[in-house]
Write a protein that binds this DNA or RNA. Structure first.
Length: 717
DNA sequence: GGGTTAACCTTTTTT
DNA sequence: AGGTTAACCC
């Protein structure tokens, strides 16, 4: 059979990886070196040239979106569907295993998935049961603690006991949380991984079955795997040891949430004879862009070492814009986007990247003024929105009356007179009698423990759910959603609220009906369509829901930009404290991660890259004065061209220019000055005018200080 | 029980 | 600044 079409478009290194013999293979793939290409072609090769059945392939990706895309590409290449191939995130694969073997995993058939929001609620409830104060035991930190342990493969019984009372208490909370989840058949995200791991590890027949089945395992974004995920891979690959991993240590940017770059190093030890292939030819960026990115990443000590190169031309120089403040920065960016568009280019070809999501606001405002359509990534995704979660909670409760998190969520949404007092009593009853909230409520309406008012509200709610249940029977999924929205009163509730937000909420709810209508579920795993849809909603946050196919400018954080590319990129906010972020300077290793983030940002650019920073920035409602990011200092001067705003002089730019001359030229950038108490220093920047003029001085003794010129009494040397 | 104001806390994100 | 949560009054 002719398989040359799989190899034709590849370079030597790519081809070597794609048709390497079975065994363990590590592909160190630099940014833009065709990583996805290698993975998809490898699958195609294994199937088409080696005659391996898709059934024997397990491919793991970082996001659901990546999995979908990759599957699509393979099917497009081969021209037939990859039926039976397992391709998805670690979580979706774990979920699949647990649904198929719920009994062996010690679960109930209808187990529900807790997303992080639900998990937080469960933790709060655990704290309440233990009579602990949320102020002293922040639920967020408990969540961090529990997930941290689970992701390292440790249950509460594995955590070593200490004499530290704080630690012991945390452990007690962890244990109580586990019990609560078990009691109500709830599985959080890290539990999916841990439980599926234990299932395969401890159940011999299943282990043998899956180890035999998955003859070829492929992993994308390996640098982002955590401990339990890596253990997973080792377990599944144990029989055939055919494992093909692709990763880039220089793009490891999720260390803060447990990802281990070290897994890459460990891999070669755990799989002796691993073949390592480096993909160093970059097909994305111009030489100028690549040089700058290389210069920055080269500052990192802990690297496996890799040098990206390109055949591409030098291209335009990378440009730096020093903005007066964040508004000036945004105006500059939008101005450049405008001229990009004037040259007949697309809006969707440009991206504005920033370190933290809060920075998007100013860009949005300026883009809005300029009437340029844009899209902001990040923030709440579709299935995470409150109104959507409310609607799903109704459906969950209908599906299982024992679902306490759902009960709590919607018992009084929309408000129906069931307040904290009543709820508290219901919770107490449930705790004492070890029953679900639903059963507790049913019991309570027949006692005299509640006020008559509370009893009537509560029974009205119970009836509502029962009615809804019979109403939904036998209906299609979309009809079920629609009925739920109307009958629960949710739609009416949000419709009568005023404001833009309420409008979007109603639209979102309507979109949920569409999502249900479009949801197609293959019945092969034995679950009914409703519960499959509910799991889908928890597992897949619905990034692209109701995506409008409009050509727009892309705004996103550096983290969400990973894996993407754009002809024109703006890397903004390069200020010490913001990027690298303040919080990254405390912990060891975090600074290098910030630098990798910078590298990721730069390597997103194909043709043009602009870097900018603001001298003054409004942050947390205050004016902050940051010095230029250290990453800028790591770029050789000749690689970076400083530019001025090209527009007909924005107002802010003008005042900035004035400010520099306004103090009679006495205090200027670079001047040596002396302060009565701080001693000698050099002027780093000047800002404001007249009596408001402020200067930033780097003093030999105390470092950088901002001073009001009028009071500082600086002596010019 | 429900609506209203005062303190609080700010990275990054997927599942 | 902005958004959320906790205390507070009707």
């Amino acid at each position: 059979m002719d398989v040359s079409f799989i190899l034709d478009s590849l370079n030597d290194a790519q081809r070597e990886a794609v048709c390497s013999p079975a065994g363990s293979l590590l592909v160190l793939a630099g940014a833009g070196s065709g990583k996805t290409r290698v993975l998809t072609h490898r699958v195609a090769w294994v199937v088409q040239a080696c005659g391996v059945s898709p059934l024997s392939i397990l491919a793991v990706t970082f996001t659901n979106k990546a999995a979908q895309e990759m599957r699509g590409r393979i099917e497009h290449m081969l021209g037939y569907p990859m039926r039976g191939m397992w391709m998805g995130t670690f979580h979706s694969i774990a979920h699949r295993l647990l649904r198929a073997h719920w009994h062996e995993a010690g679960l109930e058939q209808g187990f529900q998935i807790l997303d992080s929001d639900d998990q937080l609620r469960m933790i709060k409830r655990t704290l309440k049961e233990l009579n602990l104060d949320e102020g002293y035991w922040p639920p967020k930190q408990i969540q961090w603690y529990i997930n941290g342990h689970k992701e390292e493969g440790r249950r509460s019984k594995h955590v070593l006991d200490t004499i530290d009372t704080q630690q012991r208490e945390l452990l007690r909370i962890y244990r109580a949380y586990e019990e609560l989840c078990d009691r109500f058949a709830l599985v959080d995200f890290s539990e999916l991984l841990l439980r599926a791991f234990e299932l395969i590890k401890n159940n011999e027949p299943l282990r043998v079955r899956y180890q035999q089945r998955f003859q070829h395992i492929l992993v994308d974004e390996f640098q982002d795997t955590n401990a339990i995920q890596y253990e997973w891979l080792k377990l599944f690959a144990a029989a055939h040891k055919n494992i093909f991993i692709v990763g880039d240590d220089d793009q490891s940017i999720y260390g803060w949430r447990g990802a281990r770059v070290e897994n890459i190093l460990q891999f070669e030890k755990d799989f002796p004879g691993t073949m390592v292939i480096r993909l160093e030819q970059n097909y994305r960026s111009t030489a100028n862009i690549l040089n700058i990115a290389n210069a920055v990443i080269d500052q990192n000590q802990s690297r496996l070492g890799k040098n990206l190169w390109t055949h591409d031309e030098e291209g335009e120089p990378v440009r730096l814009y020093v903005a007066y403040n964040e508004i000036d920065e945004a105006r500059f960016v939008v101005d450049r986007i405008q001229s990009w568009l004037d040259q007949g280019n697309l809006r969707s070809e440009t991206a504005i990247l920033y370190r933290s999501n809060a920075q998007s606001r100013v860009f949005e405002e300026v883009l809005l003024q300029a009437a340029i359509p844009y899209r902001v990534y990040g923030g709440l995704r579709f299935f995470e929105r409150a109104e959507i979660k409310d609607a799903l909670a109704y459906m969950r409760l209908v599906a299982s009356r024992q679902d306490d998190p759902s009960f709590e969520r919607i018992v009084n949404v929309p408000a129906r007179g069931i307040g904290n007092r009543t709820l508290e009593q219901t919770r107490d009853y449930a705790r004492v009698n070890q029953v679900s909230l639903w059963d507790a409520a049913r019991a309570l309406v027949h006692t005299k423990e509640l006020s008559s008012r509370a009893i009537s509200s509560l029974s009205l709610f119970l009836d509502l759910i029962e009615q809804l249940a019979s109403l939904l029977e036998g209906k299609t999924l979309a009809d079920q959603v629609e009925q739920t929205l109307h009958h629960s009163g949710l739609l009416a509730h949000f419709a009568k609220e005023k404001g833009e937000k309420a409008q979007t909420r109603v639209e979102n709810l309507e979109e949920l009906i569409t999502a249900a209508r479009n949801y197609d579920h293959d019945e092969e795993d034995g679950t009914d369509t409703l519960s499959a849809f509910l799991s889908h909603a928890a597992l897949e946050s619905g990034e692209g829901q109701a995506e409008e196919w409009e050509d727009c400018v892309q705004l996103m954080s550096l983290h969400s930009a990973k894996g993407l590319e754009f002809p024109l990129v703006f890397l903004t906010g390069l200020e010490e404290g913001l990027f690298p972020h303040q919080r990254s300077l405390q912990e060891p290793g975090r600074l290098e991660e910030e630098r990798r983030l910078c590298y990721v940002g730069m390597t997103r650019a194909m043709k043009l890259l602009y870097i900018s920073y603001a001298e003054v920035r409004h942050l947390y409602g205050r004016e902050t004065y940051g010095s230029p990011s250290r990453f800028l200092g790591e770029i050789p001067d000749e690689m970076l061209v400083e530019v001025r705003s090209s527009g007909p002089g924005t107002r802010d730019r003008f005042s900035f220019a004035n400010a520099r001359e306004d103090n009679g030229g006495s205090v200027q950038l670079g001047k040596q000055v002396r302060h009565s108490s701080f001693g000698e220093g050099i002027v780093l920047s000047v800002e404001g005018r007249g009596e408001h003029t402020r200067v930033q001085v780097n003093f030999e003794s105390v470092g950088n200080k901002w001073l009001v010129l009028a009071y500082a009494n600086l002596e010019i040397l």
